[in-house]
Design a binder for these strands. Sequence first.
DNA 1: TCGCAGGCGGAAAGCGCTTTCCACCCCCTT
DNA 2: AAGGGGGTGGAAAGCGCTTTCCGCCTGCGA
Lengths: 341, 341
Amino acid sequence: MPRTSSTRAPGGAVTLQQVAAAAGVSLATASRVLHGSGGRRVAEALAERVTTAASELRYVAHAPAQSLARSRSTVVGVLVHDIADPYFAAIAAGAMDVAREHDLMVLVANTFRDPGLERDYLARLRAQRARAVLLAGSAFVGEPFAEEVAAFAESGGRVAAIGAHGTGIDTVEPDQYGGGRLMAEHLVSLGHREIGVITGPAGLATVAQRLAGFTSVVARPRLVHADFTREGGRAATHELLTRHPELTAVFALNDLMAAGALAALRELGRPVPERVSVAGFDDLPVATDLTPALTTVRLRLAEIGARAMRLLLDDEPVGRLVPAEAELVVRESTGQASTLH
Amino acid sequence: MPRTSSTRAPGGAVTLQQVAAAAGVSLATASRVLHGSGGRRVAEALAERVTTAASELRYVAHAPAQSLARSRSTVVGVLVHDIADPYFAAIAAGAMDVAREHDLMVLVANTFRDPGLERDYLARLRAQRARAVLLAGSAFVGEPFAEEVAAFAESGGRVAAIGAHGTGIDTVEPDQYGGGRLMAEHLVSLGHREIGVITGPAGLATVAQRLAGFTSVVARPRLVHADFTREGGRAATHELLTRHPELTAVFALNDLMAAGALAALRELGRPVPERVSVAGFDDLPVATDLTPALTTVRLRLAEIGARAMRLLLDDEPVGRLVPAEAELVVRESTGQASTLH
DNA sequence: TCGCAGGCGGAAAGCGCTTTCCACCCCCTT
DNA sequence: AAGGGGGTGGAAAGCGCTTTCCGCCTGCGA
């Protein structure tokens, strides 16, 4: 039985007031003991009484009230296109790890690549006074998103992005371009000259950069746009090989599409890599388990997410650009260009 | 230039006060216009002035202040073992979808199967006054977690779980037992008698139930415990087949481990399914892309996550139990038991 | 012995919003 | 024409916490 007459809060939650009463001290003292920030110390004995009372009552501070009083919250936001996509899941996991080290909670928003939803979520993150937000999805080129980002920053939040989202915000920039180039060089070195590329939605920055890197080596690949999914890759591969049966290699701009490509080639009865080589991008865990195991470009996604979160949480000036290396991972799905066609 | 003399808030954020001043109305009126809940109407003209001022100033309500005043927040929590695991990612995605329909933000907490972290996060969710929390990770049998769950519920939050976490909370219960049984029946019907089972960590409820379902049909399978990962599955398969070369089928209690099992059998040179059949559980997207395509038990994870979130957000009494069906998906990794060994 | 400084607890003023009253105005009724 | 009622805006009291002052008490030096 608490020895205070103050009633329980509506939700039934214990308040600091109650803790203070139970400990026989003032609200101020209780606050100083439990969340004491400002250099002020409280005598041993009192502090003890307060902490005891708090734990007996299972007190946890009302975070919204704290945010209000301190005018800073303990949540950060992560905006992803789709958390069920292992690409984003890996980034989010890395970011959440770092957030935990800093005792922050993470609000995850699934935007489904819908620019409207993206803006909306960003506004709501601003409403929450999230300390920072990580834009993990690759930007749509030229989307009218900058305004909302600016509003967020203006209201005191930090912003960082994976891949360029504009100037003035911290960015972790995976070397998409370099990755594309590496893969092109790899395929060329294997003798491939007729290469098809399965790209994602036009206008997705990631796609553009990977492709640009590739075409810096292979001038005019056969292109086909598709959904950034397994199914998209499968359909695109069928289309590609129907129109260009002479192709000896297919480069899918992500691993999901590459998985679809492998499925399609199996359906078409073209052995990989003997007849057609296949390559992907991202090095998702699934890459190893495909048959044949997928040659791809590795992005250390968890690491990238973690770095971005660190950028958000340190006290350095903003606008930094941290590169993240792309690395060629050669497995079994690529081989010498077949000479017969 | 706002026509009020009130300064900008520290963070630089616009306050309702400023909006009210700009619109030339009182705080109360502005609040009623923008977030007006209690049946009260405001005259057309005034309302118009307020909304205009608000959008011109890019006002968004301070969510923590709102939470405090209304004593209810707009966030819900989702506790998962690891968001990078596609199993949990799918559940979370389903849940987030429903949350969005209800205009709620989702706090995701990665617990890494660490009971301490789990309790900790739950307390912090309570601190945030999260409206509800979804316990997506399968419980450890008998963990001292109930206390914290009770505290959360007591302080006014709803709790739901995937898989049983105790009585008195809403539960979506995937038919783990039934799934295990289905797979056992399938393997038996193919003539398998010597079956090895690769289980996850002992003490994980999911594991126990899947296994129980299986052993209800196949009395004493060869068991080996492993990490609930691809690597765990690979190592376990090596161990299993070394000790019991007579096995004609391996049932891995999740798809990740099954992928590892397939890899191990490839290394061992035992063709699947001709020599050894392999089965998994969950039907993750990767299952189709394995070679041979994996026979497994399908759990509609996104649907399960969505249902659980709906349980959390409706107004029905708590303590409900919603079953979720498990479904056998036969692909190429299982076949007739080989007679030669 | 008195004065003063330093240390430490408490009162109270917010933080930005919601919501209950209260007051006012206008119009309708008798 | 006067009284009353409905409708609508505003003042103010919180929501639970932090943090600035303020003032008390103690202990030390002169």
